[in-house]
Computed example of a mutant assay.
Amino acid sequence: MPSKPEASVFHFAHVMIRVSDLDRSIAFYQNVLGMTVRRRADYPEGRYTLVFLSYGPGQAEIELTHNWGNHTYTSGSAFGHLAIAVDSVERATQLFQSRGANVLRPAGPRMEAPDEIIAFIEDPDQYRIELVQIAAEAR
């Protein structure tokens, strides 16, 4: 097994998802999930736009990739979901639902681990987002 790299050398940077309506997706991640746009770049030669959002400096980002023109995407069977750590899954689910998120699975215990509370919502492109309750000592 390879040795663990120094923490200062590596960190998780971002996850990329393709979106069909960039403005709608930005609105969801900003207005529903409370993220901030960190940077945006248009690439006319490649006919696409990249928008990076996160919860703050040094946090992992989500990269929204919008290919210009009409594109239809299907989720592959290998992709599962994105996950956001929250202090209360129930409160976060209620907040995100009040902001327009579609709740796929309300807050409740995981069947396999009843002490773990989770919920699932989805973004405008039907990407599933898991809300994971983190213990106070882990924050």
Rank of each mutant, 00 (worst) to 15 (best):
M1P: 06
M1C: 11
M1G: 14
P2C: 11
S3I: 04
K4W: 00
P5M: 10
S8D: 15
F10G: 09
F10P: 05
H11P: 02
F12R: 10
F12Q: 10
A13N: 14
H14I: 08
M16Y: 02
M16S: 13
R18G: 03
R18K: 12
R18A: 11
V19T: 13
S20V: 06
S20L: 04
D21T: 00
D21L: 01
D23H: 10
D23C: 02
D23Q: 12
D23V: 06
R24L: 04
S25L: 08
S25M: 08
I26E: 12
A27D: 13
A27W: 00
Q30L: 01
Q30V: 07
N31Q: 15
L33F: 14
L33W: 10
M35A: 08
V37Q: 01
R39L: 08
R39D: 15
R39H: 07
R40Y: 00
R40I: 02
R40N: 01
A41N: 10
A41W: 06
P44T: 11
P44V: 06
E45H: 03
E45A: 03
G46I: 00
R47E: 15
T49A: 06
L50D: 04
L50I: 00
V51K: 03
V51I: 06
F52D: 01
S54H: 00
Y55M: 08
Y55W: 03
G56E: 05
G56Y: 00
Q59N: 13
Q59V: 00
A60E: 06
E61W: 02
E61N: 04
E61V: 04
E63H: 04
E63Q: 12
T65H: 08
T65L: 09
T65M: 12
H66Y: 09
N67R: 01
N67K: 02
W68D: 11
G69Q: 04
H71D: 09
H71M: 08
T72A: 15
T72S: 15
Y73L: 03
Y73G: 00
T74C: 01
T74G: 11
G76A: 11
G76F: 01
S77E: 13
S77G: 11
F79S: 02
H81F: 10
H81Y: 12
L82D: 09
L82C: 09
A83E: 12
I84S: 01
I84E: 03
A85G: 13
V86D: 14
V86S: 14
D87S: 15
D87I: 07
V89M: 01
V89P: 01
V89N: 00
E90Q: 12
E90D: 09
R91A: 14
R91S: 14
R91D: 15
T93W: 01
T93L: 04
Q97M: 10
Q97S: 13
R99A: 09
G100V: 09
A101R: 04
N102C: 11
V103E: 05
L104F: 00
R105E: 15
P106S: 03
G108C: 07
G108T: 05
P109W: 08
P109C: 10
R110S: 12
E112K: 11
P114Y: 09
P114A: 14
D115V: 09
I117S: 07
I118L: 09
F120N: 07
I121E: 03
I121Q: 01
I121F: 03
E122P: 02
D123K: 07
P124T: 10
R128Y: 03
R128C: 02
R128N: 07
E130H: 05
E130R: 05
E130D: 11
L131Y: 01
V132P: 05
V132Q: 11
I134Q: 04
A136D: 12
E137I: 08
